[in-house]
Design a protein around this nucleic acid. Sequence first.
DNA 1: TCCATGATTCGATAATCGTGGAAATATCAA
DNA 2: TTGATATTTCCACGATTATCGAATCATGGA
Lengths: 114, 114
Amino acid sequence: MESELVIRALGALAQEHRLALFRLLVQAGPEGLAAGAIAEALGVPASSLSFHLAQLTNAGLIAQRRDGRSLIYSADYAAMNALVGFLMENCCGGAACAPTAACVVEPKDERKSA
Amino acid sequence: MESELVIRALGALAQEHRLALFRLLVQAGPEGLAAGAIAEALGVPASSLSFHLAQLTNAGLIAQRRDGRSLIYSADYAAMNALVGFLMENCCGGAACAPTAACVVEPKDERKSA
DNA sequence: TCCATGATTCGATAATCGTGGAAATATCAA
DNA sequence: TTGATATTTCCACGATTATCGAATCATGGA
């Protein structure tokens, strides 16, 4: 993960509604939530929410998929892990610190090629 | 760590110079670096750097101490760990994910009471 | 006390961001 | 098609942020 993307990710999270939104999706798991459900949960007007969803999407923190009329958003755990890894990289010059942080989502049906 | 502080921390990190600055301090370890040394390393004017240092300090991400005429800044690892923990909290509804992330700095001389 | 050094505060300016209603765009069902 | 629902795009506004030179403050040495 390169620094420019990291900045976009941090900037995306550095906002009341978006932080709540991202955490909501993190806790919702891979299933995700529809935009409408999110708007209701957060109490944010649809147009504002859409703006925030776009910010998070653009930062690579969440993914979007369609289900009928609904757009389902879900957290991208790999991006979250990469972000955390970037921050802690070479912590203490690599001395005593060997930080590891990862939220590993068990794949349901699909197989990763790597 | 409560959400308002987390937002300040994320906002503080979501900026080119400040992200580079924080990472510089994370990698420098508990010793820290003087403001002048940081300014030189980053190629940022003193007044600008001071502004950024204040942002990070205000967010609780770095600490300041004086050594003669120099002000030494160092990363607050506990704050960094708390920030990461907050983001990953209850990941996937607590299901399969047990994320742990911590950069533990070995205490030099002092003992923690907790 | 006087001076040099390290760093912060002040102030003005330009740029970016968050907001939410109205209009436009998808999708589905009849 | 027509209509209803789900969501996004457009737009204009106020608010916040980043920048950096000049002035100021703090420290230590002579």
